[in-house]
Amino acid sequence: MTMRLNELLKGGRGRVIGHADESVLSQRLLEMGFIYGTKVEVLHEGPFGKDPMAVRVRGSVVAIRRDEAKMIEIEIEGKSNR
C-alpha cells in the first residue's frame, strides 16, 4: 500500500518510494537521507497536533513537519503501521 509520510502515525514504518516533485525541499530531503528505498519509522510526534514528527532515517533521527513530510511517498509493508 502506498501513502505519504505525513499520514504515518507514531510507530508507523515504511519505505521511501519517491518524492512528489523535484523542488528545493525535495532536494534537501534527499540530502537528509530520504532517498528512494530508505526505511523510515515515526518515533515521536509533537505535543500540539502531533506535529512535527521525529522520523528515524538511515541511523539518525530527523524532525520534520507533516507539511514537509507530504513530499515523501512511502510504501507500507504488511501491517507494520499498527
Partner: peptide, 9 residues
C-alpha cells in the same frame, strides 16, 4: 511561506 523545519535530533 513557512520555511521548512528539517532538523536533526
Amino acid at each position: 511561506p513557512n520555511p521548512a523545519l528539517i532538523l536533526e535530533m
